[in-house]
Amino acid sequence: MRWLKAQISRNPPPLWAVVVADVLVFAVVLNVFALFHHVLPRSEKSYGVKSQRISTALLTDDNTASEGNAVPGDRAKAVEETDAPLPDVTPEPDPVGVFAQRFADKFTEGEVIATAESYQSKNVNVQFSKHTEPELVYYVADIYIRKIECLRTAFAKDKFGRGRWERVSSMSERMNGVIAINGDYYGGRSDGIVIRNGEYYRNEKNPIRDICIINWDGTMETYGPEAWDPQRAVNRGAYQGWNFGPMLLDEEGNAKTEFNSEVGGRNPRTAIGYYEPGHYCFVVVDGRSKQSKGIGLVGLSEIMHNLGCKLAYNFDGGQSSEMVIGNEIVSNPYKGGRKNSDAVLIIDE
């Protein structure tokens, strides 16, 4: 070491060699960073809280489930209107998160009718359509589910944590998905709300990004990070929760022009839309190709509004964006798509 020090002091290397050495070290360190930031899987501990199917917000005074799929506001209205005489026989209400009565005509008696554009069974009704406009191609899946458990989310490699990646088609195959889209790429970040299938995995809200919650009763909520209240979410019965965004429609269901997001420009996009409990839509927009240049958030917001959604939320886009029916990719992902950290699926169980 002393000898090396003396050699360097006596005979310092030329400047170009110093610059080359610095650039080489820079390249090595940057790759090590990428390895730890993006490649090596890291297990994360779940926050551990599980929401209840019959949340406190949906309980009546005598601790029984509220009627049908009513949200608390509807329930309050129903209580106010009890002056009117009640019919002698009232239909047995569906338990929370079961939409069988609401969409009875959408489901079959038990048989499965599957075509290239639709899938109909006793639990699920999916109508798939491809829309082509000048330099824009997008796919819409109109979805009715019999019960909320048909709307699922999956982690890559079936494990919660960062740096785990799997193709949406592979997750769909593993979960027996009818249709699947990519999720919010939670595994690429260390923060963000992660609620999946009723379990709270991560409770570190991102200070910038909007939040989307689907409750056990099938209702969907979108709001800014400032409105996030974990206790309220638990009480309300959050079933799925994402922290990517932005939300695409305002409170009245109108298209927006300004968004709480740094994600901009024309790109491939993935979004989920909400009509009413049990009725949703998945939208995937192709991009970065000659046939479809992708879409900005304003355009996506207009698409969701034109589809008649009351609420809509943007998921991860770019190369992540893809829609899978069964195990087959039906959209045209940029460069063939990539592995994702999570997926949103409809399953027929």
């Binding site: 960073f33 930031h37 790429y185 690429g188 970040r189 260390s190 923060d191 740094e262 994600v263 991860d316």
Partner: peptide, 15 residues
Amino acid sequence: NASMAFINNPITKGL
């Protein structure tokens, strides 16, 4: 790609 949190993550904070 801001969503990848290249700056706002524990490694870059350490750096």
